[in-house]
Structures are given as structure tokens and as C-alpha cells.
Amino acid sequence: MLELRLVQGSILKKVLESIKDLVNDANFDFSSSGLTLQSMDSSHIALVALLLKSEGFEHYRCDRNTSMGMNLGNMSKMLKCAGNDDILTIKGDDVSDTVTFMFTSDLVREIFFYKIADFEMKLMDIDNEHLGIPEAEYHAIVKMPSAEFARICKVLASIGDTGDIGTANIVLRQNTTVDKPEDATVIEMNEPVSMTFALRYMNTFTKATPLSNTVTISLSPDLPVVVKYKIAEMGYVRFYLTPKMEE
């Protein structure tokens, strides 16, 4: 028996929008501690790791560990039928090969649900590779407004990486003299680090911008970059991308 209720159903919609362009199919792993997903893109140079902790759900029942393979494109289509203020319920069981998404509006919740919609989606068998990602010390960790990071990636990608139309340099300095803490840019640097990444992937990661006001970028020369979007009270979406290196 699996039953999860998320009052802010829009969170799962945003999560799907942030990962569906990177990964087509993925296993959602449910345990008593929460919902996790780990999947690589088809070229195996980028990885997404999702955590939604059980405490973040209004109701969370997972009798035994379950893995559900879902097509993220189809799941996104179903979740798009939910209003942004809808409560989302996910139901599954051990015997059927489907998962049910139920959307209920919260207009007059104490009395009755104004609208109930449910969608049943077929599950699929996915041979998911799982990578062990060790905790690491990073040379530099940058915490900055997520919208600003998205803007920078978009601008750089539009100029292109061939040098045909010229070059672009963007310097971001630490800035903590801001009214709101989420507007700050904080750079923790243990050692200088210089790395090159495929902007196409970085731009895909920024689809997670609606999930969080801030983004954390962790860099070490020997490791894939980690681009982390914290989901308040619930967990995170983390993206990993391997660097481009000179032969």
C-alpha cells in the first residue's frame, strides 16, 4: 500500500518540468523516509537526484519499499491537468502495474472537495543504473539567486561556444549587502578552480529555477559539478555534470 498526499501539488509539477528534458524514463523509489529518484541522461554525463522527504507530505504511507518506473513525459502530461493550488494524492499498490494521481481543489476543504480528478498511469519496467555518489569537499561553493544563474546560462548559450560572433565574460562577485538573504551571492572558496561545462546541460538544469529562489553550485576539478536546488521543507533536486577536459 502506497499513499502520499502533497498539499502543494505544484511542487511535483515543478519537479517534473525540471527533469523531464534530461531523463525520459525513471524509477521513483518510495520508502518510509520519502521519495527518491536517481537517473542519468542517455549520454551518461549528467545525472539528476531527487529527494522528497516523507515529513514534507501531509500524509505519507509506504508499507514497504517500492520502485515505480514512470515515463516522465507522460507523467508531466497528467500532472499538467492539476491546478497549481490543487492537493495531489499519489496511490499505488503491490499488485497493479499502474499508479493513480488524484487532484483535489482546496476551496472549501473542511466541508467537501470542490473537484476531484483522478488519472491512472501505466508503470513500466526500467533497468535503472544506480551510482554511488560520495560526500566530497569542494574547492568552491557558490550560492546565488537561481533566476540570475538561469539568466547567465541563457545569455552565454545564446552567444554560443564556437567564438563565431565573439566572446563573453561574466564575473560574479560576492554580494551579501542585500535586503533579502535569497538575493545574496555567497562564494566560499577553499582553492581557485577553473572548469568548463556544456552550457546545453546547464540550461536544462535551470528548468528547476521555479523550485527555489537560490541555487548552489559546487565545484572541484576532479569531480562533476553539482547544481543544487533546495525544495523548502521537503528536500532537493541535484544535478551533476561531468566537466569538459583538454586531452
Binding site: H130, M245, E247
Partner: peptide, 14 residues
């Protein structure tokens, strides 16, 4: 030439 390692190179395949 510029090359890009796959993730297995950095992380343990469980």
C-alpha cells in the same frame, strides 16, 4: 581535443 568522461568514471556503479 576536448573530451568528457562519463559519470561512471567519477562515481561508483552500485
Amino acid at each position: 581535443p576536448i573530451h568528457q568522461q562519463v559519470l561512471y568514471y567519477y562515481f561508483l556503479d552500485l
